[in-house]
Design a protein around this nucleic acid. Structure first.
Lengths: 230, 230
DNA sequence: TTACTTCGTGTTTTATTAACACTAAGTAAA
DNA sequence: TTTACTTAGTGTTAATAAAACACGAAGTAA
């Protein structure tokens, strides 16, 4: 243990991100088409090597900024994937993160290492390189588990949204039907929504009210241990 | 990205384990006293460098086998800790695991890199080297969160145990009182306990029944999505 | 004016969780 | 051997939370 760190053979470390997006209809993830081997022309999660003087979350932020142009995303560490043979180039660990974004808020950037970048609905995922399918599966399970006791989806919507839009998002992620009256009751009572007094117009029916996420109150309630069961 | 992996400066990777033990009275964790710098003579979590051809979980198992002589422990990945300055020797990531053991089932082994190894009750933890206090805190929160919706504590008890012993364990970990009748009712109805027909004797009062963990049934129910709320 | 579509709202029923106290069995001491 | 002591073991009721359910209101389009 007194030997220099570099005396030991060391694994490489990447950070890979599962970027969930929602367009109002379906849940998608962001994939890049690789320009170079291994897995040339295969789709993979956006990711990259960890710089030696860069924190893990900073690395995830750097990668997402490069691919999506977005900052200050909701982001959470998922797990670290370390099967010995997960990367044909050698020993490479992947620290997985997942994040939620609204695809209409930015333009995609393929970047230099990718032929292409695209959103793929969960029902139409292509084959993926490395163990990225597995990382995706873990991320989806985490997202669903988390959503059932914490409302974390506001990043996927516009700043102002209707309760119906929010409900549809939840139904989409959880793949289940939610009772409208119970849903509205719980959310309005919870105190994590802020009425704007505005209505969404331009629809071919009655104009619904617009709400905002009350982040201040949400954080306060979270600290107090309040449980946001959906 | 076509450069050899070794062309990039690489972080070192360690695996550190939070080993929870329970002696029937209190919850403790296992700490080693370091023989060498950094943090010489300080207490730290058992851990070690990841070998380049070794899986993460295999590494955790190797470390625990060396320190405790135990195999086939309950073990779960916690998170990866990657602050740039968490190790004074350079850039070192730590993949954290936590595990549950019964301290009466084995003898501690200090190993060559440690002056000493010992159990510390949670109420009397010493200062720790690196960011190990933080890793411990994350582990404890995870353990508590997990315990409220899954009974994972059987590894901490003898093979045959009484319901009172199980309840005391839960109260100890969660730091709260549980109603005896509700607790027994839920567990007996759940089907994850197996009556042995035996009684625990040698006590100075009525001999309580001994139960075993029905792992087969537990796994079956888990797969079906059954929720074991305590 | 009428038809159509989605919005917005309360009450009842059911299920789950929490609260609660006494008798039974065994041990130890008088 | 009787009595006191300690923990084991057991059901019912009350309170709370979750689920089920239908219709008038508001706006748009024809």
């Amino acid at each position: 243990m007194s030997k220099a760190l570099s005396a030991y053979p060391q694994p490489s470390v990447t950070v890979d991100c599962v970027v969930f997006g929602y367009d109002g209809q379906q849940l998608s993830i962001l994939l890049l088409n690789r320009k170079e081997a291994p897995f040339q022309n295969k789709w993979t999660l956006p990711g990259g090597f960890l710089h030696v003087n860069e924190g893990l979350e900073a690395c995830a932020e750097r990668i997402l900024l490069a691919k999506t142009g977005l900052r200050n995303l909701f982001m959470e560490q998922l797990a670290t994937f370390g099967n010995v043979d997960r990367d044909p180039r050698g020993r490479v660990l992947s620290v997985g993160y997942y994040t939620l974004v609204n695809p209409r808020k930015f333009n995609l950037v393929a970047g230099e290492a990718a032929n292409d970048v695209n959103w793929f609905p969960l029902a139409k995922l292509p084959a993926m390189g490395f163990d990225h399918k597995h990382i995706f599966t873990v991320a989806l399970n985490r997202l669903r588990a988390k959503l059932t006791y914490q409302p974390i989806g506001f990043e996927l919507l516009e700043k102002k949204f209707t309760l119906t839009e929010l409900q549809q998002l939840y139904e989409c992620i959880l793949q289940s039907n939610i009772d409208k009256r119970n849903f509205r009751k719980r959310l309005l009572e919870s105190g994590i929504l802020k009425a704007t007094g505005l209505k969404k117009t331009g629809l071919k029916n009655r104009a619904p009210e617009l709400f905002e996420f009350n982040e201040t109150n949400y954080k306060k309630l979270s600290k107090e241990g309040y449980q946001f069961k959906i």
